[in-house]
Amino acid sequence: MRIWLKNNLGWLFILILALAPMILWSAMTPLSSRFIDLMTTLTSLGQLTGLIGTVLFSLNLVLASRHRYLEKFFFGLNQAYFNHHWLGGSAFILLLFHPLLLVIKYIPLSIALAAQFFLPLPFDIAKSTGILALALMIVLLWLTFYIRPRYQLWKTTHKFLGLAFWLASLHVYFIPSDVARSLPLRIYMLVFIVLGFLAILYRTVLNAGKKKNLQ
């Protein structure tokens, strides 16, 4: 048990951090009203996939920072990259299902309204940033998983996931949602947004500085 715990401490840590917003979210309103019927249940699941997906996205950026401590935590660089691959994939899947689960509520009301849900509108910045973030993620991860360009080119394109994270952060923070309504949830998400940006900063600016010094 102790060995298993030691071997999987990294994943357990990620799991706890990813599921914590679910607890904050469920503490906001009685769960009975969150899952009262099929439509409400799907909307609730849509909210959860968004929250957990964003936390995993941020944690994945932290993992990609290649900090020495993290490599030790995940038993070496190779293992850390393997986990980065899985974590990124999981975050991507959750974020893909986030709008799909939320749009279902609009279908019985009006298919035109449901179609509008997927269109970025200039006057609705909060929603549009979310759509653009997901679109950018789709393109960049499509390159990663299916096209597999030359390493240097792929590395450059992969850096743009930082832009996707920035757009996603704007979406999380400005969209009228449970994050806007609950202060603990807002603080929790803000911590991960800041963590994600610090990781990007560390990886791009500080690491680039280090490389220059080495040269």
Binding site: L96, L100, A115
Partner: peptide
């Protein structure tokens, strides 16, 4: 898993956008 998710995503989005149009 990603391929399956992407397939579902595009199928739903295309269907809704087409029907909306």
């Amino acid at each position: 898993a990603i391929t399956a998710s992407l397939f579902i995503f595009w199928a739903v989005v295309t269907a809704i956008l087409t029907a909306g149009l």
